[in-house]
Design a protein around this nucleic acid. Structure first.
Lengths: 195, 195
DNA sequence: CATGTCAACTTGACGCCGTCAAGATGCATT
DNA sequence: AATGCATCTTGACGGCGTCAAGTTGACATG
């Protein structure tokens, strides 16, 4: 997997290879097992090579998080593609949200942890195809005029995020009934506020 | 601080002292800085002493999380005490939830992270004064008969949890307007589902 | 009072980790 | 062909978790 056709120094694209190795370690060994040295070993380079591509371990985590947000956005769009109704589309990106968290739990937790403490917007808000851009686009039909879009977006994503983490940590059972309950609440977020 | 009146070995209650030291380290240096050796140093014992009280670093984190959940429940109850209306009381424990997360962010993140991977129920669901018992009690007035209480509880807590983490990570601004938006949604959770 | 027992803590060591300094290598430009 | 430079290697350092062995002091037993 990932043949690099290296000579000795100066092989193809070590930075990408290290990120890929990191994601594989996350999937197979979990979040705590991620280390610069393990990524280097898996990529077939010396233990200090990653330091030339990332600013310490925080930089590696940030780079992995950036790649994760790419896949995250793709997972949401994939789920929403067949839907037409705005309400169905909003629920669909939430399904994609939960599906991604279940498929790559360690990567998901890395993305939403200290790895992004410095520049969260760099991952989330950059460009319309970013994860946050997707959320904003799909929430837009439900934002009342003269209202901050952030309100609806925060409600939707906070709900999905908290629920996803509760599932990953085993705090709530992983049942389809709870999924539909959460998605139903998403559907209600666009409705009028309580009397 | 925390005079221990020790002789040489066998001082008062080292386990509690180590947990207290750990919480102080969390508050002053953050989540990543927590280590067995630092707790030991701050408690004035040798680097290997904690191993006799906790099962590795995971055990220390779990013990700190347990203490954190005690304070967490107290923070929620404190906020809810003056309220009478069930709806106001539910919103109040959510305010307490957010207040605790803001006051002790590192401790809060420790509580809801791998530290509890083994036995989450041990912290959450044990006894009526536990954090989960409090949630269940305050959600009860809004659970329709013949319905799983877990549904409402999950909706409320997932929303609070996701929102709290977004604030702590700086993903959303820390504004009172978003607080009221989230609390308004909590208020709507008890209402009838969408048409 | 002397003795044995045992939990609590210390000491020292091991390997893994991140990080730094110094050196080796090979491509690219001149 | 010679130089420059980014890239990677090597070796070292301290901090970390963890284990094995030793030391201490309290307490029960004779």
């Amino acid at each position: 997997m990932t043949v690099v056709l290296k000579t000795s120094h100066h092989h193809g694209n070590l930075r990408a290879g290290l990120v890929e190795a990191g994601i594989e370690i996350l999937e197979s060994e979990g979040l705590d097992a991620l280390s610069l040295r393990k990524c280097a070993a898996r990529a077939g380079v010396s233990h200090a090579a990653p330091a030339h591509h990332f600013d310490g371990v925080a930089g590696l985590r940030e780079a992995i998080a950036t790649e994760g947000f790419q896949r995250f956005g793709a997972a949401m769009l994939r789920e929403a593609a067949p839907e037409q109704d705005p309400r169905a589309r909003l629920k669909a990106i939430c399904r994609g949200y939960l599906a991604f968290a279940r498929e790559a739990p360690a990567l998901y937790r890395l993305m939403f942890s200290t790895g992004m403490r410095s520049q969260p917007d760099a991952h989330l808000a950059h460009g319309p195809s970013s994860a946050y851009g997707i959320l904003r686009e799909f929430c837009a039909p439900f934002v009342p005029e003269g209202t901050e879009p952030t309100v609806i977006e925060t409600q939707v994503w906070a709900l999905c995020h908290g629920y996803a983490l509760f599932i990953l940590h085993g705090i709530v059972p992983d049942s389809p009934a709870l999924d539909t309950a959460v998605l139903d609440l998403v559907e209600r977020i666009g409705a009028a506020p309580a009397s």
